[in-house]
Structures are given as structure tokens and as C-alpha cells.
Amino acid sequence: MSLLRVENLHRYLGEGDTRCHALRGVGFTIEPGRTYAIAGHSGSGKSTLLYLLGLLDIPDQGQIWVGDRETSRLTDDERTAVRNEHMGFVFQFHFLLKEFTALENVMLPMRKLGRLSEEAMRAKASDLLVAVGLGDKTRRLGTQLSGGEQQRVAIARALANDPGLILADEPTGNLDHTNADRVFALLSDIAHQRGQALLMVSHNPELASRCDHVFRMQDGVILP
């Protein structure tokens, strides 16, 4: 069974004269343990697609299947629960909660899922931070970390609940070349090692080409 399946997705954005058809019948499948890139020019609809796949937006038409569950008719709370359990997000900006340490930021999704004890959550978050190379900075606040380090904390946070799918929106867009390369390598390695799928939106053709599969988008459709 595919991890994620999309059929005939349509999405309109804006209202009145500014209304535009952002996605025009997009469809594809995502398999576990593989990395995918959505590439395209600005306004091609790639971010719109990513937010629909992350259940942060609702399509006007079409279906999104997460595993065997069709999500277009789920309530807001049900979609939120699916996100919590099956998806991890990495955005262009890290969006760490600055009042929390790196460890506590990583524990936030686990706290919501509520399946682990406090000690187990702490140990797992610590392991994840070690995995992203921040084992010695677990107690630092987000403001005490560099941009690259903050983004690595965000990656660890995205992996907290062992989601099947990691959705990344320009995860390296705010980093210098060295850090960008390191963050992508980290995401790619984790996806392959853990059997998780990585779906990444990127303007960077070099990074996109390093993924297992690239969806090229133009004017709201995926090019063949």
C-alpha cells in the first residue's frame, strides 16, 4: 500500500477577480523510504500542493489518501490527529518555540500524541537530537542556536512521532550552502534509513535532483 495517494486534486485560491485555479487535477503516489521533490517556478502551485498534502488546507475537488484513509471529509480535529501521528513538517523557517529548549521543542509533538512517558519522551528527543548532531545542545533555547542548528532541531521535531511522511517546504531556503547541503543530507539519510518518505518543495534544482523522484510543476499541473 502506498503511503500517500493523491487523485485529481483541484484548488482555487483568492476570490472574485483575483480567483485563480492553483491546482488542476494533480495526482500521484508516495512510497515509503523514498525521497520526492516538487520543483517548479514561483506560482506553479507546489506550496499549495504541499499544504494540501499536509492537511493544512482543504482541496476544492479530489481525494488525498493517507494510507487507506481518505481525508477530504475528515473534520478539523481528525485531520489534526492524522498530522500528529503520520506527518512531520519542516518549514523554511524553523518556527521553534523560543521559550522552550531544543529538547522540549522536540518533545512537543510527543506530548500531544501522549503515547510515551515523560522519561521515554525525553530519551527519544535526546536520541533524535543526537541523530541530527545536536546531542550536546539539548538544553539550549532556540535563540541560543545558529540558523542551521535551529533547522536541525526542527527536523528532529518533525521526526518525533515517527511519522511515515516528512513534508518539507523549502527546508534549506533560509540557510547558507554548507548548512543547506548538510540539512538536505540529513533529511535524505533519515528518510532512507527509517523507511520514511520525504516530500520536499524546493527552488534549488541541484537539491531537487538529488531526490529519488522529482515532480515538476507548471501552472498547477505536474508535468509528465
Binding site: G54, L56, D76, D77, T80, A81, R83, N84, E85, G88, F89, F91, F93, F95, L97, L108, P109, K112, L113, R157, N161
Partner: peptide, 16 residues
């Protein structure tokens, strides 16, 4: 606002 958005994306409901 952004922290609320990220909390929502990681699974915190509107009620939370």
C-alpha cells in the same frame, strides 16, 4: 501567531 501555526501543524487542535 507563527508558534500557534506550528503547534497546529504538529497536531495541536483548535481546542488545545
Amino acid at each position: 501567531t507563527r508558534e500557534i501555526a506550528i503547534l497546529r501543524s504538529m497536531g495541536y487542535t483548535r481546542e488545545d
